[in-house]
Design a binder for these strands. Sequence first.
RNA 1: GGGCAGAUGGUAGAGCGGUCAAUUACACCUGACUGUAAAUCAGGCGCCUUUCGGCUACGCAGGUUCGAAUCCUGCUCUGCCCA
Length: 390
Amino acid sequence: MSYFEVLKKDESSKARNGVIHTAHGDIHTPAFLPIGTKGAVKTITSEELRFWGAEIVLANTYHLWQRPGDLLIYKAGGLHKFMNWKGPIFTDSGGFQVFSLAKMRKTMEAGVLFQFDLDGKQEILSPEKSVDIQANLGSDIALILDDFPGYPFEYQRSKESIELTKRWAERAVKEHQKIVTDGDPVNPGQKLWGIVQGASFPDLRKQSAEDMVALGFEGFAIGGVAVGEPHEEMMKAVEAALPHLPENSPKHLLGVGTPFDIVQAAARGCDTFDCVIPTREARHGRLYIAAKNVETPGGTAEGYSTIDIRLEKYKEDFTPVDNACDCYLCLNHTKAYLRHLLATGEPLAIRLATMHNLKFYLNLMAKIRSAIEYGHFEEMVKNYKEYETN
RNA sequence: GGGCAGAUGGUAGAGCGGUCAAUUACACCUGACUGUAAAUCAGGCGCCUUUCGGCUACGCAGGUUCGAAUCCUGCUCUGCCCA
């Protein structure tokens, strides 16, 4: 049984249904990974995630290294046991933190120099260190430490980043092999995935993809996107990278995205996605709603809309956020109640809202898989976008 | 009936002669949020105006003053206390 199996290819696009086999179970793709940066998807239990159909979660190397420390998690028996999540875990390498916390960090050949917030101690996150930490966490999918410049995209800087990422990748692979051969990893089945950089420059994406393929990775992530660029630029980056990666390997699109982004990227062949949008925006009062039978010039379509539950107009709205939704919030509570909880700062508010948005995203992925399975993905892609409904 | 305190923008509550269209908070409105330093952040919030600026405003009516939300007088109302 190969690591990744393509179960069904869509005839109208590059989308496909597949399954990734990991030491902690299968992941049916296209899949969305709820983000649990510090070992928890904010306010949500592992049991709930599993119940709603999440098959894998993402955790962060950088943050878990700082607290509670990867050695502590190693002592706990690995991150799966520590957080009691029995399914697959995907860990980010810390590369994104290098980018998002850039003001306080310095990228060097050796790695990233930075200071811990708590005690000001200086540390270097190197490609090896990142792999070591992820080995101690015992994730099923680990990522190499990568470098990326952000937006706007600049050719020279992007070229440097794919070159540095390649050199770091070589070191990461060696370190990972060393651990597998000589070490005592928490999760011997852990796979290290490469990351393709190169902004939206086709030649750089191609080069970076080839660099990664040459290193023998079994899975790949597309990085450096969702940093403020327009949707078209993001798709351009995806289109530039995917043809140069093996068709029978899983591809993750890092940090993406809106429901629209995800559908579009799935159509281009991306298999897995992670994003803070559903969880973060839930905390900020933005709720996603499946919009069925929306009137469009081409007839009725299906898409989605969002509401800001904080608005006064929902004060006396005693209907569910989405009466067609099967999440706990929609089955049990009204907009007026959720608005009240959020307005009064009740912790339950963000939990209920998070439940809803995560269910929306997970339902979306199920719809994509189903559409591919039953041959109507083309129709779904055609009109699936955000609609205004007010 | 007497005494005391007070009346400020949706609400609470600053201001106590000019720099006040009026601090601040809440409410309300807009907008952000894409490998989570984010249960967060930014902007707006009398009316007209793109800006400049103009107009009307701090219970009501007068007055003092170059100038009043701020001082004085009367009135109205509110709260507390004493009869």
